[in-house]
Amino acid sequence: MPDIYTSDWYEAVKVAINEAVVKIPNAPKDSFTIQVEIVGDGKTPYVADGDMLRFLIRLEEGVCAWYREIDADDPSVKLNYRFTGPGSVFDSIAAGTSDPIDAALTGTIKVRGDMRFLMRQAEMVQVLLKAYSQGVDTTWPKGRPPYDGVG
């Protein structure tokens, strides 16, 4: 069971996504890059208050090709989407206790990019989000949201 936001965890998420994608009939074969920005909000113990944890997710021909953490925007990477939100919200999504659609609808997580694709491929988006939020058995060395205990 990988610790949240470690290489093993990113790899586990990648596997979970790809296992989910292959089950989608007629899944789109698009390629795109998403940057996720997790902002330290004083609640999450995984990102210092005010800091930002960034990682890229690359989907190629419909499956997750790679996942990597970055220190700053990489100008050589052309982003298709950018998701930005408070760390405690991302943590609770990864823990499966918060709903990412709710977070987007309430503006808690800001989504930038071509919304038309997300709307047209709503079923695939649902599957990907479910894989992210429920597909990995994550461990929480600094506490599981709502951070009331260690592990």
């Binding site: 309430t106 503006g107 919304m115 038309r116």
Partner: peptide, 18 residues
Amino acid sequence: AHGFIDLLLGTLMYQPPL
């Protein structure tokens, strides 16, 4: 509405239409 206005603008206003 304020929560989803960015999504609505991005989905409905400032993209060729769905």
